[in-house]
């Protein structure tokens, strides 16, 4: 294509009509080249995305049997922490009583927990990725009884929603499904 464009240029086309044709060829060549360059660049960029084996190992099954009411546990999923909480009635009520208008990132507790008793959230602060404290016994839970991120001071409630501090969003809920009453698959 490039060579035919050159020929059109080399020829003695003084006329108006020749100019337009050459312009068209130049544009088409340029567009074709840009497309080719982008197509060649894509594999070089996409190789950085998670590889097939990384994606394949990206679901985890958790046995809920040993978790007692009120207990919070931390498990590892895709290299990062997931909080699993077996919430008490009081904690559920507290989370559900909150008005949406009071929330930074409005979301109902019902939308965040498939089964009210089980809260499953990714334990990565939505500010800059630290792990909020509050899962282990004796750690600070923040002003809203949920989690507290010590890095820059974000407070989360018993539904893992952001209530105070620099974090912009609620702790995310991963994709999960209950395989049975006591077995959950995350991812």
């Amino acid at each position: 294509m490039a060579s035919s464009a050159d020929k059109a240029g080399d020829g003695a086309h003084g006329a108006e009509e020749g100019e337009t044709r050459r312009d068209f060829l130049m544009l088409a060549t340029g567009a074709f080249g840009a497309f080719g360059a982008a197509a060649a660049a894509w594999p070089l960029i996409d190789q950085m995305n998670p590889a097939a084996d990384t994606l394949a190992s990206s679901s985890t099954e958790v046995n809920l049997e040993p978790i007692k009411p009120g207990q919070r546990v931390l498990i590892k999923w895709r290299g990062k922490p997931v909080f699993i909480v077996r919430r008490t009635k009081a904690q559920i009520d507290e989370a559900r009583a909150v008005k949406l208008a009071d929330l930074v990132d409005p979301e109902t507790d019902e939308a965040r927990a498939k089964k009210a008793e089980w809260l499953i959230i990714v334990g990565v602060c939505t500010h800059l990725g630290c792990i909020p404290a509050g899962t282990k016994e004796g750690e600070l839970k923040g002003e809203f009884g949920g989690w507290f991120c010590p890095c820059h001071g974000s407070h989360y409630d018993t539904s893992g929603r952001i209530r105070k501090g620099p974090a912009p969003k609620n702790l995310p809920v991963p994709a999960y499904e209950f395989l049975s009453d006591k077995l959950v698959k995350i991812g």
């Binding site: 995305n49 998670p50 290299g79």
Partner: peptide, 28 residues
Amino acid sequence: TVITNLFSAIPIVGDSIVTLLWGGFSVD
């Protein structure tokens, strides 16, 4: 973790960029 997460502040594509930087779902 904190520095790569800076890119998650970019609207819309932020999270995809962070995944691209990590090549996974966390620094690994």
